[in-house]
Design a binder for these strands. Sequence first.
DNA 1: GCCAACGTTGGC
DNA 2: GCCAACGTTGGC
Length: 136
Amino acid sequence: MNYWLVKSEPFKYSWDDFVKQGVGTWDGVRNYQARNNLAAMKIDDLVLFYHSNEGVEVVGIAKIVKEAYQDPTTDDTRWVVVDLTPVEKLPKTVTLQSIKADVRLQDVSLIRQSRLSVQQLKKEEFDIIVSKAYEN
DNA sequence: GCCAACGTTGGC
DNA sequence: GCCAACGTTGGC
């Protein structure tokens, strides 16, 4: 079981769009590192859904319902997509600011490699971020 | 809108 | 295979 974080610009594809749709195909990835992460995802792996640019925060949890297959938006066989479905909306969003402020989360890619759009998280990191959504 | 960080491209 | 130029992402 692995844990991931994916980014989306909310004005392009927001958490609410995703929930409305029920199942979302994660297409358009054109970065090898992100692609490799997509390819490593397994059914039922959990994925944090992060809003970049606007909000700049983790908003919900999703899971993998279909493992990597050819990206239908291109003929280029180098690129793959996965399908995700929403699991739960976090009761409170977890901002990048609060992630940066947590000494236990200094190694997450959001901080170390902010441009990577599909990132892997350690189980502890995933748990810490989710627990922040339930604080107070 | 600016700019830093990073990835990609192409000339040599 | 190096590196400069350029494009893109994303935080602020």
